[in-house]
Nucleic acid binder design. Structure first.
Lengths: 155, 155
DNA sequence: GCTTGACCTTACCATTATGGTAAAGCTTAG
DNA sequence: CTAAGCTTTACCATAATGGTAAGGTCAAGC
């Protein structure tokens, strides 16, 4: 398991060269070590070099990419979308139209989710405002849930 | 596996009595047979009677409960919340206040999700409107994703 | 040198709600 | 009797993240 290739450093040497362990990378980027490893298995980030002891070592460009991924996650992009975005980000030949297309698609998805949530919210809120909310058992909310939908004929 | 108890019917007899197979129940309620079985393992619905051939048979009250569950799902309630709602629905001693409390909690959760989505949408839309979206590579969207967030000091 | 604590490694399990598949058994129409 | 179409259970998969366990490594202090 322990691969000794010519370039494998000891940890102290790596740190002296400004390289980071996975814990450092996590602190620097806000991405958990767990997820950094996960992104590696997803192919979202390339496997890093390792120390002689098999520790991952991260370079500055890796930190930047992890921050990019983190920001894109914070904007709600899926991993699949982020893979595309990261690829465009690292491609000097990209067209901004490609990026904008992805962004607009994601905005559209968010709009749909927002609308669905707002519709559910309104339906439930309408029921809730009709419910007195006291000690008595009769409840327009339960009645509404039980009776609104008729996905088939009543047997 | 094949349990012969005194009350186990043959399928034809069960259907003559107005009972339903799982496929019928699925068609009548809009809940897939797969999910009906799943809800049973979750304890959301009680195990039904079986025919001699071990087929589940559903009574009218089961159909009603499944419709209740389906409607609550359509309103975005989680399974955990639905278990509580269904319990209240079937409890004649409930207070409507308990139901309303659950409903208001769910509305609050939806409000939070809506707000989070709207914030993401706005942030991304602001970037997108600044992107010309043409053949050139420079892109405020990518720049914004890469540079907005600084979860640590730059190394 | 040896211990200790903090870190790293991999491998596995859990989450949520849903869908899919496979292998086997049952039912009913032809 | 056979074929189609149902049913059964038991797995596996999803998306993104967290947790745990068992073991290796590093640095500091005695």
């Amino acid at each position: 398991m322990h691969q000794f290739n010519a370039s494998a450093l000891e940890l102290a040497d790596a740190q002296a060269k400004g390289l980071h362990t996975i814990g450092d990378a996590a602190k620097l980027t806000g991405v958990s070590a767990k997820m950094i490893r996960h992104y590696e298995t997803l192919g979202l980030i390339n496997p890093t070099d390792r120390t002689q002891a098999n520790y991952r070592v991260y370079q500055t460009r890796d930190i930047h990419l992890l921050r990019f991924i983190k920001s894109a996650r914070d904007l709600g992009f899926s991993m699949k979308q982020i893979a595309q975005l990261a690829s465009l980000w690292q491609n000097e030949q990209r067209s901004s139209a490609e990026v904008k297309k992805l962004a607009l698609e994601h905005i559209h998805e968010m709009d749909e989710r927002i609308e669905a949530l707002q519709n559910m919210r309104k339906a439930l809120n309408d029921l809730a405002t009709r419910c007195h909310g006291d000690d008595r058992p009769d409840c327009p909310i339960l009645d509404g849930i039980a009776c609104c939908k008729t996905p088939g004929s009543n047997p």
